[in-house]
Amino acid sequence: MMYGFAWDTSTPLAYAISILPILGIGLIVTLEATVCGFAIAMGVGLVFALLRRAKSRLITWPVGLIVEFLRDTPLLIQLFFLFYVLPQFGIVLPAFLTGALALGLQYSAYTSEVYRAGLEAIGRGQWEAATALNLTRAQTYRDVVIPQAIPRIVPALGNYLVSMLKDTPVLSVITVVDMLNLANLIGDRTFEYLVPLSLVGLIFLILTLGCSALIHVIERVLPKRGIALR
């Protein structure tokens, strides 16, 4: 019995159906962590990308190193680092927020690359034409650069969103009660891991396939006429 739901281990199917509501509670946590983490990743990644376009090497070089470091080290250790080290500096966050922050920081390294590639794909000629037409920098970004960058950026961001979704189970290690955590708890109680773990796998599969399909739809409806994407 968990969250008021009892399980029925008489047959695998009955077992699966009976624990589905419990896993549903974990699914919500999983989705919340993904959404929060991705919002952080999109924001911090943008800051990194813009800093890496700065003129001074005193800025671009350290930022490049930080991005590289975030990208090349395991999420798990970054998560432990934040979880155990932040409180030593007086920053005590709920486990969920620590988890979302770790996800966000790791993925900000990826999103910053996505932004950078998207911006760099816009040739110098476009900037020069905008200057020659006397558009302001803000107008150039809004009307010329960003509309051309978005169709390149969005699909790549979408792929990282799916990827982050699949990384959220790691948060269970810092006591975030996500789907995988619940499946393990159920397994510990019933001594039957196959069904809960398989069910979690299946739910992830449905989620990621659904997300991928959604990304394809978004890709198709994005206004990108005239833009050569390759």
Partner: peptide, 18 residues
Amino acid sequence: EIFRGTSLLVQLFWLYYA
């Protein structure tokens, strides 16, 4: 699709426990 579509940690647990 199965291995790209599910979480690595789930896969490891599945192989290890299930």
